[in-house]
């Protein structure tokens, strides 16, 4: 099943079929989620309207971890089974994940200023997310650092797998250390500590962000594939000109 889609043409057809099924629901869900988040959900009894930052901040944080996890998995698949599209998927996911991480840090900082009175604190959650951002940047830099692109993607894949150690650290940082950042309140054994009037828009946004990521990932993979082909064609042309 997986090997079948190693064929770029077949993958392209599948991507073209799947794309609208990701892109349209993503747009609708994010629009609906934003409407509920901004207009149709209660303000927090302590934080007032600032709590609405949460509806962007928390899903971006989820996505930052989710995208990194997907990147680490496709890197492992690429290294183990040498699946030709796996490295491509990791390569396509990295800038998207970096952007989600950046949005998460940015909105967190905007939220921190009115609530904590500071743009930034060096607590475990914030620091580990910042490290995640640097891991994304390192992954992209390492990928582009070699004359041989295949070497770059394999080295970057190893880095992605090593860096995965940071993902559980981020997840549990608020439990292991006493942080200014609040502890987990959505995914808990005792059930979520957020009222459903806030939880539902949050989940709508979360699902919307995930679908948006899937659509963007397919688009970027297609673009990267075309770019690779264009490079191959121009190389072939140069080669031909040289031999004439």
């Amino acid at each position: 099943m997986i090997q079948q889609y190693a064929n770029p043409a077949r993958f392209n057809r599948l991507a073209a079929t799947l794309m609208p099924w990701f892109a349209w629901p993503a747009g609708v869900l994010i629009a609906v989620g934003l409407y509920f988040a901004l207009f149709n959900s209660p303000p927090d009894y302590q934080q007032g309207d600032t709590v609405r930052i949460m509806y962007v901040h928390v899903p971006s944080a989820w996505m930052a971890l989710f995208v990194y996890t997907s990147m680490a998995i496709s890197s492992a698949v690429g290294l183990i089974w040498k699946h030709p599209l796996a490295h491509l998927s990791a390569q396509a996911a990295a800038p998207i994940g970096a952007c989600f991480t950046f949005v998460c840090l940015l909105t967190g900082s905007l939220w921190g200023k009115p609530m904590w009175g500071t743009w930034w604190v060096w607590d475990a959650r914030l620091t580990s997310v910042l490290i995640l951002f640097f891991l994304y940047l390192g992954f992209m830099a390492l990928q582009n650092a070699f004359d041989d692109p295949a070497r770059g993607e394999r080295s970057a894949a190893i880095l992605a797998i090593i860096g995965f150690i940071n993902v559980p650290i981020i997840k549990f940082s608020v439990d292991w250390w006493n942080t200014l950042h609040q502890p987990a309140s959505v995914v808990k054994i005792s059930g979520p500590a957020i009222h459903s009037s806030m939880l539902i828009p949050l989940f709508v946004m979360g699902v919307g962000f995930t679908l948006y990521f899937c659509a963007l990932l397919l688009l970027r993979m297609k673009t990267l594939m075309l770019a690779r082909r264009a490079r191959g064609m121009s190389m072939a042309q140069l080669h031909q000109q040289a031999s004439e």
Partner: peptide
């Protein structure tokens, strides 16, 4: 050592190596 092996043979090796290794050493 991991960082050195990952960046072996790359362009701009030294700076890149620091970028990879420093986050892991924090």
């Amino acid at each position: 050592t991991v960082g050195a092996a990952l960046t072996l043979g790359s362009r701009r090796g030294g700076v890149l190596l620091s970028l990879l290794v420093i986050p892991l050493i924090v």
